[in-house]
């Protein structure tokens, strides 16, 4: 893997999310996994089983933290207690970079626990970039922001989502966690060409990639992380790898979770695209 400054020049390959139903398998079988992504909030506690499990995982595996409630786009200031606990966890895991979502989800101290979309306005660009900078400075590690799936668009928006993403990361000088499944879901819900999005992303800032499955309803698609990755999403992934080079990749599977082996096998399908990239690179060199 070729790293960049947004993932601390890491050589992380293909990882999977650390999920409770897989704990017994992981501890008894000790499978070879390049790295696990953890949901930071599940481990931002003071003691007990969550931290004991995490310490056991850290003895054998590399861990990267992914958050779900930093809400970079919220207008109210970050909760100092949240930041303090997050930094404590960062020190514990030694995560080389940390990601959270380009969204909002709390206002005036009330939390929705959802990844709510932002209006793509210049005001949102400024505020979001400022908050990313504050968090990144405080945590003292690279931060990557993830594009979310969305089901609503705002009348106030002044640019496309990919233009918004680019403006935020350039101003915050941060990385991108590019979720190609989220791009696909939003492209169906908002009727845009997902390949245009992937082609527009500043590739040099992509720290990590996410792949996942979703659920299709009559009038929209929901990002449910409960199915295998579909072909159109693999195509977006292949294009992202072409543009970004081999990049740490994580399969998300959070609901109706199948066996560890099934999840791992699905994630390992990404290897094919990484090998294709390597073969093409060799051809060019030859």
């Amino acid at each position: 893997m070729s790293g960049n400054r947004f993932n601390a020049w890491s050589n992380h390959g293909i990882g999977i999310g650390l999920r409770i139903p897989h704990y017994a398998h992981i501890f008894s079988r000790k499978p070879v996994v390049d790295w696990f992504e953890i949901i930071s909030e599940n481990f931002m506690v003071d003691g007990g089983r969550p931290l004991a499990v995490l310490d056991q995982i850290l003895e054998r595996y590399r861990v990267v933290q992914h958050g779900v409630s930093m809400y970079f786009g919220s207008v109210t200031a970050p909760d100092p207690e949240h930041l303090r606990r997050l930094k404590t966890l960062v020190r514990r895991t030694g995560t080389p970079w940390l990601s959270d979502h380009l969204c909002w989800g709390s206002v005036d101290g009330t939390y929705t626990h959802d990844l709510l979309p932002l209006p793509y306005t210049w005001e949102a660009v400024e505020r979001t970039a400022e908050r990313v900078r504050i968090v990144q400075d405080y945590l003292e590690i690279p931060v990557a922001v993830e594009n979310v799936s969305s089901y609503a668009a705002f009348t106030a928006s002044e640019m496309t989502e990919w233009e918004f993403l680019t403006e935020v990361v350039e101003r915050a000088d941060c990385g991108i966690l590019l979720d190609v499944n989220n791009i696909y879901v939003s492209s169906v819900n908002h009727e845009f060409d997902p390949m245009e999005y992937v082609n527009a992303v500043p590739a040099q800032r992509v720290a990590q990639l996410h792949i996942a499955g979703h659920s299709r309803y009559e009038k929209y698609i929901l990002d449910t992380h409960d199915h295998p990755v579909i072909d159109p999403v693999w195509q977006l992934y292949a294009r992202a790898i072409q543009r970004c080079g081999p990049t740490p990749t994580l399969l998300e599977w959070d609901d109706r979770i199948p066996s560890f082996d099934e999840v791992h096998a699905e994630a390992k399908k990404a290897e094919r695209y990484l090998l294709d990239y390597a073969a093409q690179a060799e051809e060019v060199t030859a």
Partner: peptide
């Protein structure tokens, strides 16, 4: 504040988030 699309009204789009919450 929500824009509709060809398949969903603004109300229906907002409702998705109301239900999810």
């Amino acid at each position: 504040f929500i824009a509709p699309n060809m398949r969903l009204t603004a109300f229906e789009r907002l409702e998705i988030y109301n239900r999810q919450y």
